[in-house]
Design a protein around this nucleic acid. Sequence first.
RNA 1: GGCCCGUUCGUCUAGCGGCCUAGGACACCGCCCUCUCAAGGCGGAGGCACGGGUUCGAACCCCGUACGGGCUACCA
Length: 487
Amino acid sequence: MTDTVRVRFAPSPTGHLHIGGARTAIYNWAFARHHGGSFVLRIDDTDKERSTEENTQAILRALRWLGLDWDEGPDAGGAYGPYHQTQRGGLYAEALETLKSNRRAYPCFCTPETLDAKREAARAAGGFSGYDRTCRSIDPADANARIDAGEPHVWRVKVPADRGDIVLDDAIRGTVTFPSSAMDDFVLVRTDGSPTYMFATVVDDWKMDITHIIRGDDHLSNTPRQVVVFEALGATVPTFGHMGLIFGADGKRLSKRHGATSVEAYRDMGFLPEALLNYLALLGWSLDETNVFDRATLVERFELSRVSKNPAVWNPGKLEWMNGVYLREMTAEEFLDRILPWLYEAGLLTAADATARRAWLLELAPLVSERIKSLDEVVGMVSFLFTDELVIEESAREKVLAKEGAGRALEAVAAVLADVEMTPAAVEDALRDIPDRLELKPKLVFQATRVAVTGSTVSPPLFESIVLLGRDAALARIAATQPLATP
RNA sequence: GGCCCGUUCGUCUAGCGGCCUAGGACACCGCCCUCUCAAGGCGGAGGCACGGGUUCGAACCCCGUACGGGCUACCA
């Protein structure tokens, strides 16, 4: 046994990393780092039908993207390997032998059909509907004979008759008591010899010297069962901590119908890993009244006693707000490096262009970073700067260019732009004169110019946009714009 | 049905017997700023599930009820 903290995250590679799983990983990671312990990654791939290597890699990728690191795992190795359950069969077999020899497990020959029937009957009668322990009283010699004769059987754990209440000192929920009278002699090893999840996970946590099991509270009711196995194995029972689950807005467990649920989906929608991490950390844990904090603060301040017991509803709106906060806090350099991949992807520019025009891009960056909530909005906001054939939005044309005076305004703007110094301040000074001169509202002049230059009624600030676009392009666009009304 | 857990503004939460006329954040509404959109500033509306106790005093402790959730598989 070790006295240092060892925690694990054990995903099933049957799909991508779910945001609920990600939060569990984050809490375990933060707990380990806070205590200077070890964070172990184990792949619970006993479901051979649905587990894939692609999923495993995708999960590792998502965890790394979030900025989590682990001390032991399938790729990192470690003294407690292997880290795939499918490679640990020998350990489960060994553990079963232990339980056979100390008589804490027994073979059960009941067929699924009889069990179903009994369960139905018990439930109809009300009360406990667990296994009735028929096979527990079979004489060991008879049982062995039946096994030797090839009779199909499973192995069940024997819950001691005198065990009494199983009392859990949960690190998140406090004391939870389970009467052992409601405890089932559940299956450890299936007819085909494979371990059930309940058995494999206990053997692994035991063999890996896991000290704290931090997981969703959907496992709370399973915990006394697992405690019984730890005890039967003669293992030290780890400390448990059960957190509330993440729900959708309808109060149901988060699933596909609530929209995006995988970490990588959020990455692809333009969310920053630090923002997702922050939001997830805050969903069911609180520092005090601080909402925005960095990774180091999370590690420094994380404690299980401040993890919430109640379920939390996933709130995409707050995630977006938080992503915006992180986006706005970035320097132009940082922000530019984040958006470049999106610009490449959209075909707006090449890596060579980006290098050549870096100074120009750095001028653009702060104009955009203040206006978006996620990276995927960048392309739509800046594409007008990268096209040779601007298409003016029809609604903008109707709403602005059809206004009385729009044509005169554009002519005046063009005249002024022809020889103004190309800095935002100079352009602004020059254009500010026009409304008075033409007796038009400033808003009309500026909006008409905006539509002509950017193609939309919504854009980054006008004067900066004109400067970034350049005199020639701006003048060409204004000249090409046909107002709908007579001047 | 049985066992277990949970319940503070719409949402995430602070609160751990007097500091609470219940604080913060998102969202919402209004005003300000303003070349659009944002961002920002100021202000507003909005909550202790219900009923009993215990106590001088309860959002906080106890007991019920209601509602929600989990488990009750040879799923994980």
